[in-house]
């Protein structure tokens, strides 16, 4: 546990009956960090966040938040955590204004007192302050929920999949807002199933089946990709994937947007591939070496190391 760590989790496990939701998880979050948990549905993100927000009890391990134990210190902690659950915690029949006032009062403060903190965010939705929350668009709901979670100026903000189901514009705005909160030294814990959002965080934990695969700064996580990676394009994508899998030197071949990302055995690459593909009838093949993204790294971490034969999906 470092001196200024806001969250310190060590050897945390949690099961629901037969299901091991979290398996021996450890990590630290420093003050003022935007810390992202990236992983698919069912990886354990929500369970972890619920333990951190004192909503669930850990089975094993220690969880210290803001210097307090998450079990014994839950009353004190609840005053200092802002939490935005996966389903926006808004009252759909109350207006924008009423929702905000309600959460402010419940946390023993007023909207005016901390208005500067939410001003940027709330400005987007203030024109609709008399509208019931249920009638807002997804993006506006998300902004209102964030305002409500922030209104008591929490030291720690926990956001569970805030960008799920929200369009790309609103998502981009949302991340810009989180960035602006940095000047208030609020530590932010955020989860998302979308790999591309990882780069927006200061630090990222890749999580899968209740285990953390890697924790680091996003650039360093992608740097951890140890292989040479090639991007292969052709208009006949399905045929291309089949052909690449059959190519004897291929190690992995995954579709990746409009291209296929390929690694080769022993990272050996020469123009045999091009000749192989041309011989197979492809007329518009382009091959180039490319930098790995976070998703490539996630794929690498998810699959066991080389076994010597072609991997099939």
């Amino acid at each position: 546990m470092t001196a200024n760590s806001i969250i310190s989790v060590s050897h945390l496990s949690k099961s629901f009956g037969e299901v091991n939701a979290l398996k021996d998880i450890s990590f630290d979050v420093g003050e003022g960090e935007v810390f992202g948990f990236i992983g698919p549905d069912g990886a354990g993100k929500t369970t972890l966040f619920r333990i951190i927000t004192t909503l669930l009890l850990p089975d094993e391990g220690e969880v210290t938040i803001l210097g307090l134990d998450c079990v014994k210190g839950f009353r004190e902690l609840r005053k200092n955590i802002g939490y935005m659950p996966g389903r926006f915690s808004l009252y759909m029949d109350l207006t924008v204004e009423e929702n905000l006032n309600f959460y402010a009062t419940v946390f023993g403060t007023t909207v005016r007192e901390n208005y500067d903190l939410i001003a940027d965010i709330y400005a987007h939705i203030e024109p609709f302050r008399k509208r019931p929350a249920g009638k807002l668009s997804g993006g506006m709901k998300q902004k209102l929920a964030l305002s409500c979670a922030l209104i008591h100026k929490p030291a720690l903000l926990v956001l569970d999949e805030p960008t799920t189901g929200v369009d790309a514009v609103s998502r981009a705005e949302f991340w810009e807002m989180l960035k602006k909160l940095k000047k208030y030294h609020i530590t932010i814990l955020v989860s998302t199933p979308y790999m591309d959002e990882a780069m927006r965080c200061d630090k990222v934990a890749l999580i899968q089946e209740g285990k953390i695969l890697s924790v680091d700064q996003p650039e360093r996580i992608t740097d951890g990709f140890s292989r040479r990676l090639f991007s292969v394009r052709s208009s006949e994508k399905y045929k291309l994937i089949r052909a690449l899998r059959e190519f004897p030197l291929t190690d992995t071949a995954y579709p990746f947007g409009d291209s296929v990302h390929v690694t080769f055995r022993d990272d050996h690459y020469d123009d045999t591939l091009y000749r192989y593909l041309t011989a197979a009838g492809f007329t518009d093949v382009s091959i180039g070496e490319t930098r790995a993204g976070i998703e490539d790294r996630f794929l690498e971490l998810m699959t066991p190391p080389l076994q010597g034969s072609n991997r099939t999906l």
Partner: peptide, 13 residues
Amino acid sequence: EFGTMEALLVSPL
């Protein structure tokens, strides 16, 4: 069901 109970529980109420 709507998830607002989670927010209430995490509040000092």
